[in-house]
Amino acid sequence: MSQISKPKLAVWKFASCDGCQLSLLDCEDDLLAVSQEIEIAHFPEASRAVMKGPYDLSLVEGSITTPHDAERIHKIRRSSKYLITIGACATAGGIQALRNFKDVNEFISIVYATPSFIDTLQKSTPISDHIKVDFELRGCPIDKGQLIEVICAFLKGRKPNTPAHSTCIECKRRGTVCVMVAQGKMCMGPVTHAGCGALCPSYNRGCYGCFGPQETTNTGSLSAQLKKMGANDDEIVRTFRGFNAYAEPFRRESELHDKKNN
């Protein structure tokens, strides 16, 4: 296969911690296979050598938090055939979307010596609020196996296998004992999108909801159960306000328990 005929991949960063981009570098042996099949044309995290667009596939990490980024994402969309957002920041606004529940100007005045230098938006928002996104890959961080799966699927023109059902199914398939039922631990698993392989419960921890809401969330029922188990409203707010705090079902549920709103 000649160099020219390889599909071109670009990786873009917005407001984020870079962890999801690192998942691609973390693919190790698979990364070699990826680089043989596709041209990694723009990936500043990995190489200063960048090729001009257009690109066959763009992976976008991070949320939109500045007026500059709100412009930049449109240019990337225009130069990309397919655009996939990766990680909780890009798909839900990320942990930085906690600002969305407060007044960002107050933070700026407290944190920065010269607040007038700061040009930021009131809210941290997912990429799909700004442009058309072809596919959203969930997780904080994303699962590298799922990333390879999505890249393969787009290159071959098939639907990726990234089931949107609950994390509980992953726990049960691997034989993990339910930490909520057997140990009375708070767990977001029943309302959380699968994808991590149910990592935390396999280490006797409740799920933190890193992959965001599953396809059919009943957050109200989970909150009622957490209350029965002894959680108060503040704890429920904190449970839903994690990496996917601004994902619609989690945002709505946390606001129902936020004293500020009641």
Binding site: S166, K172, C178, G189, P190, V191, N218
Partner: peptide
Amino acid sequence: LSCANCTMVCPTCFCSTVEDVT
């Protein structure tokens, strides 16, 4: 919760799906 725990722990539930991967 539509979490599917009941069906996973049920000793008679037998449903499965297939996933094709490349």
